[in-house]
């Protein structure tokens, strides 16, 4: 990928943020890797490879991008999406459309970095269309500023056609969250599979709201939605996991684990299961509470302090 000279300094800054969020800048510059780099309301880099077609442009306060994977293509290297905002204050709107055509296979690695923003609202909407027998994985890691002034509002709607597979993971564990609103719903057709996972760690007065919904609308559709939240200090968290069994032999499982640490946390989880077809099976697990005392005792008996043991266990849960 070539970065336009006008944007080379901006890229350097963004690359710094990208590396902070765990990304590897060399992937963004590798010609063999399809990628898009978004800074504020500009596309400062874009690279297509065989089987991947990325179109993108400017829109009010942000960027739109349409990413299409050609029928039957198996993309050997993950597509990298780098979204950043370098200013201290503002709003960024990003609209993605992902189309994975029948029989295609693709992996995405997305990093959203807002390390210097003190008052930013980042709004992302995504439409995901996964064709018959196609597979898409999407790993999304966020890196926000430590001031807690970032608001992220993310809304994804995915449709997975017959025997398609969709795996989505969202991670915001290394920095302050600020305010997070994640909404994701998946419409699963016959034999389709979805695996949704969110891991978030709240600190100070972070505010976390996640709603994941599995629509098991096709025969033998399978889905899992799993959320792991670590809420410390004054974190406020509301997690809703839903599964709707609307088709025969469909199976869904939803799971929410919320670890609390601090007298002022305010957390809740609400599992919702609804069946409209008596051959569908849905299950759920939910727990809220401090770290298991037996886990703590086990690690403390190996000479870790309570703080060290807590951190060790939490890191594992969020890894």
């Amino acid at each position: 990928m070539r970065i336009a000279p006008d944007y080379s300094k901006e890229f350097e800054k963004l690359a710094e943020a990208y590396e902070k969020s765990g990304g590897d800048t060399s992937n963004l510059l590798d010609k063999r890797v399809a990628s898009i780099i978004i800074s504020g309301d500009k596309v400062i880099g874009l690279n297509n490879v065989d089987g991947v077609e990325i179109e993108a442009g400017k829109q009010e306060l942000g960027v739109w991008a349409k990413i299409r994977i050609s029928k039957g293509k198996k993309i050997p290297m993950p597509i990298h999406l780098c979204t950043g905002f370098l200013g201290k204050e503002g709003e960024q709107r990003v609209n993605f459309e992902f189309i994975v055509e029948d029989g295609a296979t693709v992996n995405f690695i997305s990093h959203c970095s807002f390390p210097w923003s003190t008052k930013l609202t980042h709004k992302m909407t995504a439409i995901v269309r996964i064709g018959k027998n196609a597979t898409m994985t999407y790993a999304d890691a966020h890196f926000h500023s430590e001031e807690g002034g970032v608001t992220v509002i993310s809304d994804t709607h995915a449709i997975v056609e017959e025997n398609g597979k969709y795996k989505n993971s969202f991670e915001l564990t290394r920095t302050r969250v600020g305010k997070l609103v994640v909404k994701m719903d998946v419409d699963l057709k016959d034999g389709a599979i979805a695996d949704l996972e969110s891991k978030v760690r709240g600190r100070a007065d972070d505010d976390i709201s996640i709603k994941e919904s599995l629509g098991l609308n096709g025969k033998e559709a399978h889905g899992i939605a799993k959320s792991t939240i670590v809420a410390t200090e004054k974190t406020h968290a509301r997690i809703v996991n839903e599964a709707f069994g609307n088709a025969p032999y469909s199976k869904g499982h939803i799971e929410c684990t919320e670890i609390t640490k601090g007298a002022d946390v305010d957390v809740a989880t609400l599992p919702v299961l609804k069946v409209t077809n008596d051959l569908s099976e849905l299950t759920h697990e939910a727990s809220i509470g401090r770290i298991n005392s037996k886990q703590l005792d086990t690690m403390m008996a190996k000479s870790m302090t309570e703080e060290e043991a807590t951190e060790f266990i939490i890191k594992g849960m969020l890894s």
Partner: peptide
């Protein structure tokens, strides 16, 4: 427990708990 462990005492508990992601 930690202080005793730091002095060289430890235990393998009868019931061994699992640790996600470790």
């Amino acid at each position: 427990i930690s202080q005793r462990a730091q002095l060289g005492i430890t235990i393998a508990f009868q019931e061994n708990v699992r640790f996600e992601g470790i």
